[in-house]
Design a binder for these strands. Structure first.
Lengths: 152, 152
DNA sequence: TACGGATCATTGAAAAAGTCAATGATTGTT
DNA sequence: AACAATCATTGACTTTTTCAATGATCCGTA
């Protein structure tokens, strides 16, 4: 089955003290979610990565590619590929930076926003599936803790 | 800066509603942690993956390679490579499965346990760094939520 | 103003990781 | 005994990641 599996049986190995390793817990939960997310996003020709870029492009924050790279923890060259793809499909556009002419600002097209809205709805179903074991309150708590860990 | 960066400045993009996307939050925190972890583990010739395998090998749970693959969300062929590497360096050994002679049980050597203890200590420093923004209680809470989300 | 070092997007090459199908040994089931 | 299923392994293949080099542009400083 491999990395794609969504098998959620409780493995006896969870007993190992590795089950307290935050790094591994994050990796596992992320891996599990990625499978679900990418599966759902494939209906829109998107993957987690390109969806994230599209989301930022739709945010109105007018991110530069450098900012996208920083925020998404990607190499700048990876952002080039992702934006290339989205641009070819008419979902985003490169605009010239306002203060800095080296920078390119990524903005969504109307079609991009249309796709994004639908994809986002599909993803919310995935999140519910992924965090089904958590109550609504715990769900919010998890989000808050992750955000706090990231940005204080 | 790319995926390697440990720059933790609060980016203005965090304002985007993507900041509520659990998948992205997990990806980011995981990516950030991986950089720190792999950097620390390189002193021992390990990476996150091989450390995880070593941890399970040291756990006394006598995991088979198949169990390692399932638990770590890896393809079985990836486990072969990881165990090959650890075995060549004398940190683990392949033992014959007890009920099933097809399966190989991965057990640690004395040297493996020695390295693991030291590596584990180094990783705990990383975790503290990564989760510096969280209180001790929140830290435990995060672990608990992640574990609950994974296996209820 | 002009120089010099730094930053941006981009390219392309190289390394690493992930995916997948096929295989021999072994298991459990009919 | 025969059959399908499972385990570890191999090898081919694709994708992702990493890294250095490049031209354009920005900024600080002389």
């Amino acid at each position: 089955m491999g990395p794609q599996s969504t098998n959620v049986e409780t493995p006896r190995l969870a007993a190992a003290k590795i089950g307290n390793d935050v790094g591994l817990l994050l990796a596992k939960l992320h891996a599990m979610g990625s499978v679900l997310n990418n599966r759902a996003l494939s209906d829109f020709g998107l993957r987690e990565r390109s969806f994230s870029v599209l989301t930022l492009a739709c945010s109105g924050l007018e991110p530069t590619q450098r900012e996208l790279a920083d925020f998404l923890s990607l190499d700048p060259s990876q952002v080039v590929s992702l934006v290339d793809d989205l641009e070819h499909r008419g979902l985003v556009e490169r605009a010239q930076g306002k203060q800095d002419r080296r920078a390119k600002i990524i903005v969504s097209t109307a079609e991009g926003r249309r796709i994004h809205t639908k994809a986002r709805a599909a993803l919310e179903v995935c999140e519910q599936t992924q965090l089904a074991a958590l109550s609504e309150e715990e769900n919010a708590q998890l989000r808050a803790l992750l955000k706090k860990a990231l940005w204080g």
